[in-house]
Design a binder for these strands. Structure first.
Lengths: 122, 122
DNA sequence: CCGTATCCGTAATGATACTG
DNA sequence: CAGTATCATTACGGATACGG
């Protein structure tokens, strides 16, 4: 569906398959109940496993571990082990990971707008 | 929507619950395998049930129906029934629904950036 | 045309206990 | 501290058939 409803300025076809793929990529990366909370927490700097557990209410170590692994695989976070006793592990956003912030902002923006819109019609 | 981690000792953040809630709202709305494809298709104008089925490869009527109901409940689409025989039903994005487009654009943008970033390091 | 009803398999998440 | 292992449960989505 390569529709292009060209209005004045360009920038239109969401449905061009290249864009569809990009959206799918993005969704795959942030998929799961805890990915965005984790990223959100890491927006404020490096965190250790325990810090993340404390920051994110109700998350279990199992899920935190699992999601962090996926984020690392997807180059969203880096994991650094320091050879202390006991070991210290730090998680940090990659540059790409930090840019998800813009997406989060867009989500916050839409969420608030939408709530407002819905409220005003009820 | 700024992050400003510097408000005295208080963390003013994305994690401020108001923002967390807004993100969760947004995710709830677009959750599911077919929500964004449906919204994407409706970006190009009103569609009938059958049109959507044709536009979206592999979707079953069960899922299309289910997702449309949720989108309607969330004020993302409107459903209009015309009293013809057989009945005609049209689905259309609400203003709020149309604004999801901005979110899609942000996803496309990040997805492409990220792919680029990952490629260049391999 | 516009859906609904059932049934079923898998994937995602939770609960809890445990290890190096 | 930084995770794993195991088991139970729920959410999600596909297949198919049928109804107004």
């Amino acid at each position: 569906m390569d529709t292009s409803t060209t209005n004045g300025n360009e920038k239109v076809q969401i449905c061009s398959s290249e864009f569809v793929v990009a959206v799918r990529d993005t969704l795959n990366v942030i998929r799961g109940k805890w990915k965005l909370p984790i990223i959100g927490s890491l927006c404020y700097g490096k965190k250790r496993f325990k810090d993340l557990e404390n920051d994110i209410p109700k998350i279990t170590p199992r899920m935190l571990s699992k999601e962090l692994k996926e984020l690392e695989l997807n180059s969203i976070v880096t994991r650094t082990v320091y050879d202390t006793t006991p070991v210290t592990v730090e998680y940090e956003l990659t540059p790409s990971g930090r840019k998800i912030r813009e997406l989060l902002d867009a989500m916050v923006k839409w969420g608030l707008q939408h709530r407002e819109a819905v409220m005003s019609t009820e």
